[in-house]
Simulated scan of single mutants.
Amino acid sequence: MNIHYIGENNSILNKFVSEIRDVKIQKDSLRFRRNIERIGEILGYELSKNLSYSGVYVETPLGKKKLQLSYNDVVLCSILRAGLPLHQGLLNYFDDAENAFISAYRHHPNKDKEFEIIVEYFAAPSIENKTLLLADPMLATGQSLAAVYQAIKKHGTPKEIHIVAVIGSTEGVEFVKNNFPENTHLWIAAIDDVLNDKGYIVPGLGDAGDLAFGSKL
């Protein structure tokens, strides 16, 4: 897997990451969603540099200009519900992409820290031989992304896969690396070293879905 740790370099990205982590700022759900969206835009811009391009002539009122434009058939797939603001950020830049949505959640059958990933819903166009962007803001254990990939594989084989995440754990990144094709790309804003015994990233930011859309039952 090709790992692109964008937050390693100093940029405005780190301002948005700091605000979604900050307990005083993240309580503003509108600002939280917008910051996730802006992080998606930045990661999408960086990702775009890795796509395929060809020369196209564009006609202006005064002549023609040859520009290098991407010709990838992009399908943008987000994991519900936390992935929606990240999805919007990517869609702001890949506005001609096709869209897909998939659900994945942790199920604790014994009411303890042990869990399994349940995937129940998938709505998507054909992904066969297309460029698949998988958006999930929190890459904790990596099990959700692996389960999603296994479900999506039943519907076709993408030409290439780009995973877009906001914050991940070192353990989760390694798990995804071992469970996706070798030529997969991971675009991530921040990586934290610790994953606690409940499978949450530390220091992380908390529950991205709850911060964006409110607490769930």
Rank of each mutant, 00 (worst) to 15 (best):
residue 37 E to H: 09
residue 138 M to S: 00
residue 20 I to P: 12
residue 83 G to P: 08
residue 137 P to S: 03
residue 182 E to T: 05
residue 187 W to H: 04
residue 199 G to W: 03
residue 90 L to H: 06
residue 91 L to Y: 13
residue 146 A to R: 09
residue 70 S to E: 06
residue 40 G to A: 08
residue 147 A to P: 05
residue 162 H to T: 12
residue 200 Y to I: 09
residue 35 N to W: 01
residue 190 A to P: 02
residue 145 L to H: 01
residue 129 N to Y: 08
residue 104 A to D: 09
residue 143 Q to E: 15
residue 45 Y to Q: 14
residue 49 K to H: 15
residue 62 L to H: 11
residue 20 I to G: 11
residue 60 T to V: 10
residue 49 K to D: 07
residue 155 H to M: 07
residue 193 D to W: 04
residue 60 T to G: 01
residue 168 G to C: 01
residue 36 I to W: 00
residue 3 I to A: 10
residue 123 A to F: 07
residue 74 V to P: 02
residue 103 S to R: 13
residue 177 K to N: 14
residue 182 E to G: 05
residue 63 G to W: 05
residue 81 R to K: 12
residue 130 K to T: 13
residue 32 F to L: 01
residue 3 I to L: 14
residue 214 G to L: 05
residue 6 I to L: 15
residue 31 R to W: 04
residue 25 I to A: 12
residue 203 P to V: 11
residue 200 Y to D: 10
residue 12 I to C: 05
residue 81 R to F: 03
residue 41 E to S: 13
residue 59 E to R: 00
residue 123 A to I: 08
residue 151 A to F: 06
residue 49 K to I: 13
residue 97 A to S: 14
residue 118 I to G: 01
residue 12 I to A: 09
residue 180 F to V: 15
residue 174 E to V: 10
residue 197 D to K: 13
residue 7 G to R: 07
residue 72 N to S: 11
residue 34 R to D: 11
residue 186 L to A: 04
residue 194 V to Q: 13
residue 169 S to W: 02
residue 98 E to H: 10
residue 127 I to S: 04
residue 215 S to C: 01
residue 133 L to Y: 00
residue 65 K to A: 14
residue 150 Q to H: 13
residue 76 L to Y: 06
residue 184 T to G: 06
residue 66 K to I: 09
residue 213 F to L: 07
residue 64 K to R: 07
residue 146 A to M: 11
residue 162 H to Y: 14
residue 30 L to Y: 13
residue 14 N to E: 13
residue 127 I to V: 14
residue 34 R to G: 03
residue 102 I to T: 02
residue 73 D to W: 00
residue 63 G to M: 03
residue 16 F to E: 05
residue 193 D to N: 13
residue 23 V to Y: 14
residue 33 R to M: 03
residue 98 E to Y: 08
residue 46 E to H: 13
residue 117 I to E: 00
residue 143 Q to W: 03
residue 1 M to W: 07
residue 184 T to F: 05
residue 85 P to T: 02
residue 54 S to E: 14
residue 11 S to V: 02
residue 66 K to W: 00
residue 46 E to V: 12
residue 162 H to C: 11
residue 95 D to E: 14
residue 142 G to R: 03
residue 202 V to A: 12
residue 34 R to M: 11
residue 125 P to R: 00
residue 53 Y to K: 09
residue 116 E to W: 09
residue 176 V to K: 03
residue 174 E to I: 06
residue 148 V to Y: 14
residue 187 W to N: 03
residue 97 A to N: 10
residue 41 E to H: 12
residue 172 G to Q: 06
residue 44 G to Q: 11
residue 88 Q to A: 11
residue 34 R to V: 00
residue 110 N to S: 15
residue 185 H to G: 08
residue 124 A to K: 07
residue 33 R to W: 01
residue 181 P to G: 03
residue 126 S to N: 01
